[in-house]
Amino acid sequence: MEITNQDFSNLLQYIFMGIQRGSIYALAAMGFNIIYNSTGVINFAQGEFVVYGGLMMVSLTMTMNLPVPVAFFFTVLFVMLIGILMERLTINTVKSPTVLRLVIITIGVSIFLEGIAMVSWGKNSHVLRHFSSSETFEVFGAMILPQTLWIIGILVFIALGFILFFNYTMTGKCMRACSINRDAARLVGINDRKMVMISFALSAGIGAIAGIIITPIIQMDYGRGTMLAIKGFGAAVVGGLGNSVGAIFAGILIGIIEAFGAGYISSHYMDAIALFFMLIVLFVKPSGIFGSSEASKLKEF
């Protein structure tokens, strides 16, 4: 079959669409991983952090008319505060924190936060202005939104920040120590409870950023959290739970598979195709693409 210009620009269009979708899954997956690494728990309220990020940004920029960078900063701070509160009030107070108990608590918090969002922001979808122009520009026949570039740029920036933080700062190293062996970390004097709190703050912050950058494209409403959390969780599992490089790779891969599925096969089966891919990965390599099967045997799940 001859490849025409049209085919190429379609391919490019689908790839960009996939990366844009996938970046959000990747950010949600990274949020899952941070908390998973420090507590061994899947935080099902992760999607709510994304929703709160988006909605808070809408309030600050659209109603209070703050400039984007200022609003960005305060929104992330606000959501990080929610993350810290969540950890202090619900996770930290549990006397014998088994994984199952904590997971159920996070589900409860997720439903609670969803309800609060519904009451405070209403049930409507909210729109947010694009960071720069909302006019698309053309790259080899594919139409690309400036916002897509923002999303990709911020994802790269966060990924770099992530690597620097966990490899070169004391706090980052302490958090890694806790995730490798909590008891040993305590023995050398690391305050593991504080590390858990920081991990919630970080993961909430990343969730908030995901929410802020995606809202101009998808509109935000209080109920979006669950779906975002499920897709992000999928990306985290496919990439190997706890592995952040894996999360980014798997998130974008799932996004692109969805876009290709919708574009080349059928939009009726878009979600099915992505889920089918996840199942295949888990059958072939249950610890995820980047996960180590040795390590996963030692974890509770």
Partner: peptide, 11 residues
């Protein structure tokens, strides 16, 4: 729950 219909529209 979908967020982007670009692929469908391109088709």
């Amino acid at each position: 729950a979908d967020t982007d219909m670009t692929a469908q529209l391109v088709k």
